[in-house]
Amino acid sequence: MAEPSNPHNVEGENPEQPVMAADEDEDDDGGAPGGGLPVLKRSKGGFRTLMTTIHMASDWDATYPREGDTGVDAPAGYITLWADFFTEGNLRLSVTVFVAEVLEYYHHHISQLSPFGMFRIRNFNYTFRAHGSDVTVENFRRFYQLTVNTGFFSFNQRHGSLKLMTPPKGVSKWKTKFFYVKTFAVYAHMTFRDVNVGVADEDILVATAKTVEWFSRLWPIELKKLDNNQLWVLRMMLTRPDRKARPVLRENSGEIVVGLWSMFEPNFEGKVELIPCGLREGFNLEIVSNFRVPTRAVSLGIWASLKSVSPRNSWRKAGEETRAGSR
């Protein structure tokens, strides 16, 4: 298998980029009159199809919202998740350790993250995993800066950094497509961050051949919708159709591909296949360490403590402060 073409210039430095290219503008997506969030506009049939497609575990009790609900109306013990996290951003539950660490580092709640922010998190996750580089918050920060816009958090490309992806166009009405899951489905220390405080610029060096050893191996991998087997072979999905099998990426010749970045090449025609393995062998053991998974005892404890506590008051307070600040 040939090595990918190098996107860097001859000196190995980053091409100059604007802080945010025109095609990376956040979609405000509108809202309800008075500055509130719009109500649900997604069919129950579409919700059920999504839950089946992404293999949503029954433990998370994914719940279709009530008529007239908005994204702030999660019942006590539940949180809101945006459907485009899953349909466009390749998110699956349980979340990976990296997703949890990003939420914890920036001290915001997953419900306060726009889909565009999730796109960048997940794209970085599979880009670095495909290249065999360390998937860390520190490395993520070399490419992205936290931002806040219209009451939601996202990430802009850091000035001077290599562009890893182009966000999809046509992601509209995302605030009207949501559902609820039990709070512990996203096992991370999350808080509802005040969207009015603003976000300070972070002082961190962008990645170059002079600052990090993996830079010369890196090439941009555009955002792409991945199926469950592709997420599985990238170790970005925990639920497995067969626990006595492990996924491998094969070329049409039948050869197992070592470089997972190959699946993103435009001319790659191979596929992910399952091969037998023991329950306590290799992949099935190693993959678990990539995810934040609460034990059943922890889950029950969290559920009991949160059953009488609703996040909607925290969210509504943040929303009211946002609207008051914009008047």
Rank of each mutant, 00 (worst) to 15 (best):
V95H: 02
P18H: 01
V148L: 06
L234W: 01
R158G: 07
S43E: 08
R280S: 11
Y187L: 11
E255F: 14
Q230T: 01
Y180Q: 14
R42E: 13
M236Y: 07
F268K: 08
K307N: 15
R292L: 14
S133N: 10
R158E: 03
E16K: 10
A57G: 07
S216Q: 07
G301Y: 00
V19G: 13
P247L: 06
F119G: 05
S43I: 07
A297M: 10
E101K: 08
A21G: 05
V298S: 04
T295H: 05
R292T: 13
N156D: 12
L205W: 01
T96I: 08
L226Y: 03
I275T: 14
G71F: 00
G132E: 06
H159K: 14
G31N: 06
H108M: 10
I275H: 11
L274Q: 10
D28M: 08
N14K: 01
L279M: 10
A207P: 13
V199G: 08
L285R: 06
S114A: 11
N252D: 12
S289A: 10
S114N: 10
N228E: 11
G170P: 04
K177E: 12
K224Y: 05
W303S: 15
A62H: 03
G132T: 15
F116L: 06
N123V: 00
F47W: 08
L50W: 03
A130G: 12
D194Y: 06
T322R: 00
R193Q: 05
I121Q: 13
Q157H: 05
E202D: 14
G151I: 01
Y64H: 04
E13P: 15
F283G: 04
S310G: 11
K182L: 07
E16Y: 05
N228L: 09
I110F: 15
P4T: 02
N90H: 03
Y78G: 04
R316T: 11
E138M: 06
L274P: 13
G270D: 09
S326G: 09
I54F: 04
E320I: 00
A100G: 07
I204K: 01
T295R: 05
M118N: 13
F283K: 06
L249M: 07
M118I: 14
W315D: 02
F155P: 00
G270C: 10
Q17T: 01
W214A: 02
Q145G: 05
L231R: 03
A207S: 10
T70V: 05
V272E: 11
F283I: 02
